[in-house]
């Protein structure tokens, strides 16, 4: 009966089946969620507490505040570390292929190294290497 009615309407409206399927799909997803919410709301009372609402789950009580000040100098150190990091990555293949390199490649590599060293010299002169 119902199937007949649906078939009759779908022959008249060819695309009606699409919103119907969509409603069914959304209902399929939402019904378990609603059931879970209703069960939690009506049958299992919430029992919040100091321990249960605590942020950390290791059993120890948190000491102090998590909103502490991080010094920006740390990030400058991180950036300077990159100078040495990139240098190491390029120096190793440079050393391995050193004897087979042409003069042009050698000059290009030295320029690249000088660029990195320039960054270090800049940081040094700025006084970033001293920890305040």
């Amino acid at each position: 009966m119902l199937v007949e009615a649906i078939l009759m309407t779908t022959t008249d409206h060819n695309y009606l089946v699409l919103p119907m399927l969509m409603v069914a799909a959304v209902g399929f997803a939402l019904t378990p969620l609603a059931a879970a919410w209703a069960w939690a709301h009506f049958f299992s009372p919430a029992k919040p507490g100091k321990d249960k609402n605590a942020i950390y789950e290791c059993g120890l009580e948190a000491k102090g505040d998590a909103w502490i000040h991080f010094r920006s100098e740390y990030y400058l150190y991180g950036i300077i570390f990159l100078v040495f990091d990139v240098e190491t990555i390029f120096l190793l293949p440079f050393a391995v292929a050193f004897t087979g390199l042409s003069v042009g490649a050698f000059v290009a590599m030295i320029i690249f190294l000088l660029l990195l060293v320039e960054g270090l010299v800049w940081a040094w002169r700025k006084g970033i290497l001293n920890w305040h």
Binding site: K47, K52, E57, G59
Partner: peptide, 13 residues
């Protein structure tokens, strides 16, 4: 012991 009880308290019913 206090840590054990605290972790137990953090478990949901």
């Amino acid at each position: 012991a206090p840590l054990v009880v605290r972790i137990y308290n953090q478990m949901p019913e």
